[in-house]
């Protein structure tokens, strides 16, 4: 779209009604269509204890956006706010889901995932998975070490 704004904080996105996209280690905002016109898709986050948290996200949102916007009970999720400098938004996909995701992980994403607990071959960072229309019904697993405090 017309112009890009460097993203400095997570909240700005909400205020400006913009969609976010990730380029390398910077978060960049593109001013897109008003949110109202955007399609919603449903995502399910399965916690280690089996709890299933369902949330709606808009096309163009990242899975981190979905967790934050829906206020999902996942403590510590997204500590660096989507800037590819931590691995607290680690999610585990099924092989099928992993293969179907349109964007493949960048070197920088893999670097961060390498520091995650319970790393699998189908691990991704939630901040790097951007919702598209075909992702309605997406289900991802949240590793235990992020949020259940090993209770």
């Amino acid at each position: 779209m017309a112009f890009n704004i460097l993203r400095t904080g997570h909240r700005i996105g909400k205020i400006l009604n913009v969609k976010s996209a990730i380029h390398s280690t910077q978060r960049v905002l593109t001013v897109g269509q008003p949110v109202l016109n955007k399609k919603e898709v449903e995502v399910t986050f399965v916690k280690a204890n089996g709890d299933r948290l369902k949330a709606k996200g808009k096309v163009g949102d990242s899975l981190l956006d979905v967790v934050i916007n829906s206020n999902l009970d996942l403590d510590g999720f997204g500590a660096c706010e989507g800037t590819l400098t931590c691995s607290t938004c680690h999610l585990i996909c099924s092989q099928e889901t992993y293969d179907s995701l349109p964007n493949k992980p960048s070197e920088e994403e893999l670097d961060m995932l390498d520091l995650a607990y319970e790393l699998t071959d189908t691990s991704r960072l939630g901040c790097q998975i951007i919702l598209t229309e075909d992702m309605d019904g997406l289900t991802v697993k949240v590793p235990a070490t992020i949020n259940d405090a090993r209770s």
């Binding site: 510590g76 607290t88 405090a149």
Partner: peptide
């Protein structure tokens, strides 16, 4: 890293 400290603090 920060994740380690966070997990430990939560637990």
């Amino acid at each position: 890293v920060i994740l380690t400290t966070m997990s430990n603090a939560f637990s």
